[in-house]
Amino acid sequence: SADYSSLTVVQLKDLLTKRNLSVGGLKNELVQRLIKDDEESKGE
């Protein structure tokens, strides 16, 4: 998976916004949300 932890919070929020995901929470939560979304989209 992508190394989201190396991105800035601003970059993470931009990715979340593009996916229509919540941008609330700490950086670690944003990273986990993106990883979870990646895993769910692979399952389709």
Rank of each mutant, 00 (worst) to 15 (best):
S1Y: 14
S1D: 12
S1A: 13
S1N: 14
S1T: 14
A2T: 13
A2N: 14
A2I: 15
A2D: 12
A2G: 12
A2V: 15
A2M: 15
A2L: 14
D3Q: 08
D3W: 11
D3T: 06
D3M: 07
D3S: 06
D3L: 07
D3F: 09
Y4K: 02
Y4W: 01
Y4L: 05
Y4S: 01
Y4G: 02
Y4F: 04
S5L: 12
S5Y: 11
S5Q: 14
S5A: 14
S5P: 09
S6F: 07
S6C: 10
S6I: 07
S6R: 10
S6L: 08
S6Y: 08
L7Q: 06
L7H: 05
L7P: 01
L7E: 03
L7C: 09
L7F: 04
L7R: 01
L7Y: 04
L7V: 02
T8F: 00
T8H: 05
T8P: 06
T8M: 03
T8Q: 06
T8E: 07
V9I: 13
V9P: 06
V9Q: 06
V9E: 12
V9L: 09
V9M: 09
V9N: 06
V9G: 04
V10Q: 15
V10M: 12
V10S: 15
V10T: 14
V10C: 15
V10G: 13
V10L: 11
V10Y: 04
Q11Y: 02
Q11S: 06
Q11H: 05
Q11K: 06
Q11D: 07
Q11E: 14
Q11F: 03
Q11V: 07
L12E: 01
L12V: 03
L12M: 03
L12N: 00
L12Q: 00
L12K: 00
L12C: 02
K13R: 12
K13Q: 12
K13E: 08
K13N: 07
D14S: 07
D14A: 08
D14Q: 09
D14N: 09
D14H: 08
D14M: 07
L15V: 06
L15A: 06
L15N: 03
L15T: 04
L15C: 06
L15D: 04
L15I: 10
L15F: 05
L15E: 10
L16T: 02
L16E: 01
L16D: 02
L16M: 04
L16V: 03
L16I: 04
T17L: 13
T17Y: 07
T17D: 08
T17W: 06
T17E: 12
T17K: 15
T17H: 14
K18E: 10
K18P: 00
K18L: 07
R19E: 03
R19W: 00
R19T: 02
R19D: 03
R19V: 02
R19P: 02
R19N: 03
N20F: 06
N20K: 09
N20R: 09
N20G: 15
L21E: 02
L21V: 02
S22P: 15
S22Q: 09
S22C: 10
S22V: 07
S22I: 07
S22A: 11
S22T: 08
V23G: 07
V23F: 05
V23M: 07
V23E: 07
V23N: 09
V23D: 09
V23Q: 08
V23C: 09
G24C: 15
G24P: 03
G24D: 15
G24I: 15
G24E: 15
G24F: 06
G24R: 12
G25C: 04
G25E: 03
G25A: 03
G25Y: 00
G25K: 01
G25W: 01
G25P: 02
G25M: 01
L26Y: 07
L26K: 13
L26W: 06
L26C: 12
L26Q: 12
L26G: 15
L26M: 12
K27L: 08
K27T: 06
K27N: 03
K27D: 04
K27G: 04
K27V: 07
K27P: 08
K27I: 09
K27E: 05
N28S: 14
N28Y: 09
N28W: 14
N28F: 09
N28P: 11
N28L: 09
E29C: 08
E29G: 02
E29L: 05
E29Y: 00
L30E: 01
L30A: 01
L30V: 01
L30P: 01
L30Y: 02
V31H: 02
V31T: 05
V31N: 01
V31F: 01
V31A: 05
Q32N: 11
Q32E: 13
Q32I: 09
Q32K: 10
Q32D: 12
Q32H: 08
Q32G: 08
Q32M: 09
Q32C: 11
Q32V: 08
Q32F: 02
R33N: 02
R33D: 01
R33Y: 01
R33G: 02
R33T: 04
L34K: 01
L34N: 00
L34D: 01
L34M: 03
L34F: 00
L34Q: 01
L34A: 02
L34S: 00
I35W: 04
I35R: 08
I35C: 08
I35A: 07
I35F: 05
K36N: 11
K36R: 13
K36Y: 08
K36G: 07
K36E: 11
D37Y: 14
D37A: 11
D37G: 06
D37V: 04
D37C: 08
D38Q: 04
D38N: 04
D38E: 05
D38S: 05
D38P: 01
D38C: 05
E39R: 11
E39W: 11
E39A: 11
E39L: 14
E39Y: 11
E40Y: 11
E40A: 12
E40T: 12
E40L: 13
E40S: 11
E40Q: 13
E40G: 09
E40P: 06
S41I: 10
S41P: 09
S41R: 15
S41A: 11
S41N: 14
K42W: 10
K42H: 12
K42N: 11
K42L: 12
K42G: 11
G43Y: 11
G43R: 14
G43M: 13
G43W: 11
G43N: 13
G43Q: 13
G43K: 14
G43P: 11
G43L: 13
E44S: 14
E44G: 13
E44W: 11
E44F: 12
